[in-house]
């Protein structure tokens, strides 16, 4: 079984978001970048399934410039076998999906996994675009993934419940909790990651279809109105008569 795990390079979850003075770009100064937390479920589950089968390969794929390589190496340290970096700025979901589809096709991957969405762009689009480009099923968002031969059984989250879906390879799944406990690299992994192959390729396909013209931060709150705990019922009156939300 050949697994392709797509990872994106995102600001750490604790990052305070700021933009360049013209509000056109995210201000990267002093920001720590990590593997997108949702993608960690995809990576760990691919490694677990490969280990359980006793054969197969896990390739990680990132669309990004050279500054994403530390996180690609981290994915190799966690247990992926090799990596591919498409040397391009990830302009939008469509552009990224084109890169993934091209590589998935060329490498004839059986299972293409990624996180539900990236925590910076929050598009939740790439999975379906890749599936459609390749003409294969997509299961999104997947909470559970088991493989038996070429058949996968997945739990797909729907509003208010879940669907049990089974698909044959090749397929795409976008992953979320509680699929697995994401792994962290151990010392041996970190040592071996240095010599694992990381191939850099050029981007293909059509240009992006969307463009960010401006970023903005949410409006600041006016300040909290405190109610005395002894008189907590007063809050309910305020919610009805002042805020008018109940």
């Amino acid at each position: 079984m050949k697994f392709l795990v797509c990872i994106s390079n995102v600001p750490d979850t604790t990052t305070k978001i700021t933009f360049t003075p013209d509000n056109k770009e995210f201000n990267k100064a002093g920001v720590q970048f990590v593997i997108n937390p949702w993608d960690e479920y995809a990576l760990t589950r691919a490694i677990e399934l490969k280990e359980a089968a006793g054969s197969g390969t896990v390739t990680v794929l990132n669309v990004g410039e050279a500054d994403t390589e530390p996180n690609i190496r981290k994915a190799l340290a966690i247990g992926a076998d090799d990596a591919i970096r498409v040397n391009a700025h990830p302009q939008d979901a469509y552009f990224v999906a084109e890169q993934i589809a091209a590589i998935a096709k060329e490498g004839a991957y059986d299972v293409i996994l990624m996180g539900k969405e990236s925590i910076d762009y929050n598009g939740f689009q790439v999975h379906g675009m890749v599936g459609e480009m390749l003409g294969i099923p997509t299961v999104a968002p997947a909470m559970k993934l088991d493989m038996s031969g070429n058949t996968a059984t997945l739990e797909r989250e729907i509003e208010g419940g879940k669907e049990i879906v089974s698909v044959n390879t090749p397929f795409v799944a976008s992953c979320q909790q509680p699929m697995c406990e994401p792994r962290i690299p151990n010392m041996r992994g970190i040592m071996t990651a240095r010599t694992k192959p990381l191939k850099v390729v050029a981007a293909v396909g059509e240009p992006a279809r969307t463009q960010v013209s401006e970023f903005a931060l949410p409006p600041k709150k006016q300040g909290v109105k405190l109610i005395d705990a002894a008189n907590a019922g007063e809050l309910i009156k305020l919610l009805r008569n002042e805020a008018k939300v109940i």
């Binding site: 762009y121 929050n122 903005a216 931060l217 949410p218």
Partner: peptide, 9 residues
């Protein structure tokens, strides 16, 4: 965008 921390046009 940014998981509720910002908006993008």
């Amino acid at each position: 965008a940014f998981s509720g921390k910002a908006f993008a046009d």
